[in-house]
Simulated scan of single mutants.
Amino acid sequence: MNSFGQVFRLTSFGESHGRGIGGVIDGCPAGVEIDLEFIQHELDRRKPGQSKITTQRMESDQVEFLSGIFEGKTQGTPIGFVIWNKDQHSNDYSNLKDVFRPSHADYTYQKKYGSRDHRGGGRSSARETIARVVAGAIAKLLLRQVGISIHAFVYRVGEVELKKSYQELDLSLIDSNIVRCPDAETAERMIARIEEAGRNHDTVGGVIQGVVTGVPVGLGEPVFNKLHADLGHAMLGINAVKGFEYGSGFDGTRLSGSEHNDVFVKTESGIRTKTNHSGGIQGGISNGEDIYFNVAFKPIATLLKEQQTVDKDENETLINPKGRHDPCVLPRAVPIVEAMAALVLADHYLLRKINHL
C-alpha cells in the first residue's frame, strides 16, 4: 500500500536513513510544463534545517528526475525521481534498536512485520513525505493550467489561534515568516510558543488550514470516492495527523438546519451560494465554491527527555532519545498538506475528463 491515487497515481519508496527517498508518478498527462525551480521551492519549504524552529538535520533535498520529462514537458509516461539522503546520523538511534518509543510506529511495525528499521523510524518517518511534495508540485502545475489554486497555512499552534477567516487574510504572506501563518502578530506568538516547547525539550501540536480556489463544479464521485472523503483519506495519511474536518466541520453541529443550509442564488457568474458551510462540496461533488478544511496535528512523539517504555522482550525500561527533531511539525507540514490536496484535486480533475469523453 505504497501508492496513492486512481488516475494521477504516486508510488513512493525509501526510508529516512536509507540511500534516498523517491517515487514514480503515473497517469500525469503529456504536455504539462515542468517548472523545476517551482518544484525545488516546494521541497525547500518542507526540508529540515530551514529555521530556528525546525530540526537542524541539514539536507539539500535536491530532486533528480529520472524519466518522463523531455524538453521541459511531461511525456505522459511514468515520471521517476529520487532525492538522495545526505545527513543521516544513524548512530543517534542505536540506543533505540531494542525499545519501543511511546506513540511511535516502533511497536506496531515490529508486530506487523517481525522486524523494523529503527534508524529514524525507517519507512514510518515523515521524511517519506518528500515524495508526496514532488508529486504534489507537479499536480499543482497541472491544476494551475485550469485555474485551480491551493494554499495552506498554520492556523493554530497549541492554544495560540488565528482569529481571522481565510477570506480576511492575504494568503501571499504565508511564507513571509518561519511559522507560515499569514498574520504577522499571530505568527510571532506561535513562534514564541514553539520556542518555549523546544526549551523544555517538549513538543506542541496544532492545526493547518487548507483553501482550494477556482474549483469547477463537478469534481468528485457520488458514493465511495466523494471529494471530501478522498481529501480526508489524503490528510489522515500524513504523519502525526489526528483529525480532519471540512466546511463548518464540528462547529456546524451547533447550528440548526435553517442556519446551516447554503442558500442558492443566481448571479452574473452563474449559480452560487450565499454562505459556504458546505466547504465547497455537496453530495461528495464540488459545487464551485471555495473548498476549505482543517487538519489537526498531534505534538510530535519524539521528546528529548526521559520516558518510560518497554523493550522487545517486554521488559519495562527508560529511554532518553537523541537526535535532531522538530519541536512542532506544522511549519514544515504546510507544503505536505498542499501537496496531498493537489494530488486529490488532480486525480478528480482527470477522472472527470475521463467520464466526459
Score class of each variant (00 low, 15 high):
residue 175 D to W: 09
residue 127 R to Q: 08
residue 30 A to Q: 14
residue 321 P to N: 11
residue 225 N to G: 08
residue 284 G to E: 10
residue 74 T to Y: 00
residue 157 V to I: 01
residue 36 L to R: 14
residue 129 T to C: 02
residue 46 R to V: 12
residue 202 D to N: 14
residue 349 Y to P: 00
residue 304 L to W: 08
residue 190 M to C: 09
residue 276 N to G: 11
residue 263 V to E: 03
residue 103 S to I: 04
residue 276 N to A: 11
residue 67 S to Y: 08
residue 222 P to N: 09
residue 356 H to M: 09
residue 59 E to F: 13
residue 57 R to A: 02
residue 268 E to Y: 11
residue 252 G to P: 04
residue 252 G to T: 12
residue 338 E to A: 09
residue 310 V to L: 05
residue 146 V to P: 06
residue 325 H to C: 00
residue 60 S to C: 10
residue 249 G to F: 06
residue 258 S to D: 02
residue 88 Q to H: 13
residue 231 L to T: 02
residue 77 T to F: 01
residue 169 L to H: 05
residue 2 N to K: 11
residue 295 V to S: 01
residue 197 A to Q: 05
residue 6 Q to T: 04
residue 55 T to N: 11
residue 175 D to T: 12
residue 241 V to E: 12
residue 41 H to R: 15
residue 339 A to D: 12
residue 200 N to H: 06
residue 134 V to Q: 04
residue 171 L to Q: 04
residue 182 P to H: 08
residue 274 K to I: 15
residue 149 S to P: 00
residue 14 G to T: 15
residue 207 V to H: 11
residue 19 R to L: 03
residue 110 Q to C: 00
residue 254 R to Y: 03
residue 57 R to V: 02
residue 108 T to Q: 10
residue 114 G to W: 01
residue 223 V to L: 11
residue 35 D to W: 00
residue 45 R to E: 13
residue 267 T to E: 10
residue 1 M to N: 07
residue 306 E to N: 07
residue 245 E to P: 03
residue 48 P to H: 01
residue 38 F to K: 12
residue 286 S to M: 09
residue 121 G to S: 05
residue 63 V to Q: 14
residue 122 G to T: 03
residue 222 P to A: 13
residue 16 S to Y: 10
residue 62 Q to E: 05
residue 353 K to D: 07
residue 107 Y to L: 15
residue 266 K to N: 14
residue 174 I to G: 09
residue 205 G to S: 10
residue 326 D to V: 08
residue 70 F to Q: 14
residue 347 D to R: 07
residue 173 L to K: 10
residue 274 K to D: 07
residue 173 L to F: 04
residue 27 G to H: 04
residue 210 G to Q: 06
residue 23 G to H: 06
residue 168 E to L: 06
residue 301 A to Y: 01
residue 335 P to N: 13
residue 263 V to I: 09
residue 316 E to W: 13
residue 159 E to G: 00
residue 248 S to R: 12
residue 4 F to C: 00
residue 347 D to G: 06
residue 329 V to R: 01
residue 239 N to F: 00
residue 161 E to Y: 02
residue 98 D to P: 03
residue 27 G to C: 08
residue 336 I to P: 03
residue 163 K to W: 03
residue 262 D to V: 14
residue 169 L to R: 05
residue 4 F to R: 00
residue 280 G to W: 06
residue 273 T to N: 00
residue 241 V to N: 13
residue 311 D to F: 12
residue 321 P to I: 15
residue 163 K to T: 12
residue 143 L to E: 03
residue 48 P to Q: 05
residue 139 A to V: 06
residue 4 F to E: 00
residue 142 L to V: 07
residue 123 R to M: 02
residue 106 D to K: 06
residue 189 R to C: 04
residue 310 V to I: 13
residue 335 P to E: 15
residue 88 Q to T: 15
residue 181 C to T: 13
residue 163 K to L: 13
residue 165 S to R: 06
residue 199 R to H: 08
residue 87 D to H: 12
residue 153 F to N: 07
residue 342 A to M: 04
residue 146 V to A: 10
residue 28 C to H: 12
residue 258 S to F: 01
residue 220 G to W: 04
residue 184 A to N: 10
residue 279 G to V: 05
